[in-house]
Computed example of a mutant assay.
Amino acid sequence: MYMFDRLTKTRFIRRLNRFVLVLKIDQTGEQIEAHLPDPGRLKELLVVDAVVWIQYADNPLRKTNWTAILCETDAGTLVSLKTTLANTLIEEALLTDRLPFFKGWTLEKREYRVDHSRFDFLLANHDGAKLLVEVKSVTLARNEKGFFPDAVTNRGAKHVKELTQLAQLGNYQSCILFVAQREDIQSVSMEATIDPVFAKAIEDAVEQGVHVFAVGTVINTERIEISKQIPVFV
C-alpha cells in the first residue's frame, strides 16, 4: 500500500510538454503548472476539464511546486499518473510475500545491473536460482481491458529482448510484471497497433520461457494498493 499526502483537486487545461501540465485549482481558480511523472501520451485521460489530483512539494530546487498524482476518467475512475508507484507497490509486495506467483522467491536487490542494462528487481530462491523482474505500469484501458504501451517504448522492447536472451543463456530466470494503475482494468494485453515491436518482443519472450504476470490495484485519493492477479494476453 502507498499512502498519498493531502491531494488538491484541479482541472486540466493543457499540456505544455511531456512533463508539465497547466491546471486550474478547483477551490481558488488559480492557474498553476504541475510536474507530470508519466511521460506517456495519456491522450485518453488528459482532456480539457478532466479532474487531476495534485500534491504540493515544498522544494526550492524544483521548477514547479506541484506534482500530478491522479487523473479521473469521465466515468470517475481514478488513474495513477505516477509510474514509479508500480515499482514501489511491487517492492512492498515482495517484502511482505503478497504475490503468489513469486512464492519461494525473496527480494535480493533493486535496480540490478547485468552488463550495460539495469533491471527493476533481482530475486533469489533457496536453491540459489536468480530471477530478474522488470515492472511495467499500465494506464491505457478500454472496456475494462488494459493495454501496454500507450506510446512507443524502445527502452521497453530492449529490456524484454535482453531478458529473453538472459533466460536462454540459463544464468537467470526472467519475468515481466504489469501493474494496472487503475482499478477498472481486469486484464492486460499488448497494444500492437501502437508498438508492434514491443508486442512481438513479448510474444517471443513467452515462447522462450520468460514469465509474464499482471496485477490489479485499488485506488482512492488516500491510497493505492495491489488487489489481485489478473490475466495477461500475449
Score class of each variant (00 low, 15 high):
1 M>F: 08
2 Y>D: 00
2 Y>E: 07
2 Y>C: 06
9 K>G: 03
9 K>W: 08
10 T>C: 10
11 R>F: 13
12 F>K: 01
12 F>A: 01
14 R>E: 15
14 R>W: 09
15 R>P: 08
15 R>K: 15
16 L>Y: 11
18 R>F: 13
18 R>G: 02
21 L>Q: 07
21 L>F: 08
21 L>E: 02
23 L>W: 06
25 I>D: 03
26 D>M: 09
26 D>C: 12
28 T>C: 02
29 G>K: 09
34 A>S: 08
38 D>Y: 05
41 R>L: 12
44 E>A: 11
45 L>S: 02
48 V>G: 02
48 V>N: 10
51 V>Y: 11
52 V>T: 03
55 Q>K: 15
57 A>M: 11
58 D>E: 14
59 N>F: 07
66 W>E: 04
67 T>Y: 03
67 T>G: 00
70 L>S: 01
73 T>M: 06
73 T>I: 06
74 D>E: 15
75 A>T: 12
76 G>C: 10
76 G>D: 11
77 T>P: 01
77 T>L: 09
77 T>D: 15
83 T>S: 13
84 T>I: 10
86 A>W: 03
91 E>K: 15
95 L>D: 11
99 L>S: 00
100 P>D: 09
109 K>L: 13
109 K>A: 15
112 Y>W: 10
115 D>Q: 14
118 R>F: 08
122 L>N: 07
124 A>Q: 14
127 D>G: 07
128 G>A: 11
129 A>D: 15
129 A>C: 11
133 V>P: 01
133 V>S: 02
134 E>M: 08
136 K>Y: 05
137 S>V: 02
139 T>A: 04
140 L>A: 04
141 A>T: 01
144 E>R: 11
145 K>A: 14
146 G>M: 05
146 G>I: 04
148 F>Q: 05
148 F>A: 01
149 P>F: 06
149 P>L: 03
149 P>H: 06
151 A>N: 14
151 A>P: 00
152 V>A: 07
154 N>F: 13
157 A>G: 07
158 K>H: 15
160 V>P: 01
161 K>I: 14
162 E>A: 04
165 Q>F: 13
166 L>A: 02
169 L>Y: 13
170 G>E: 03
172 Y>R: 02
172 Y>C: 00
172 Y>T: 04
172 Y>K: 09
173 Q>I: 10
175 C>N: 02
175 C>I: 08
175 C>L: 09
175 C>A: 13
176 I>Y: 04
176 I>W: 07
180 A>M: 01
184 D>C: 08
184 D>E: 13
185 I>H: 02
185 I>N: 01
186 Q>S: 12
187 S>L: 07
188 V>Q: 04
189 S>Y: 12
193 T>H: 15
193 T>G: 05
195 D>G: 03
196 P>V: 03
197 V>R: 11
197 V>W: 02
200 K>C: 05
200 K>G: 00
204 D>R: 06
205 A>F: 06
213 F>S: 05
214 A>C: 09
215 V>L: 06
216 G>I: 04
216 G>N: 06
217 T>P: 01
219 I>T: 06
222 E>Q: 15
224 I>N: 00
227 S>L: 12
227 S>F: 11
228 K>M: 10
229 Q>T: 14
233 F>L: 10
233 F>R: 13
234 V>S: 10
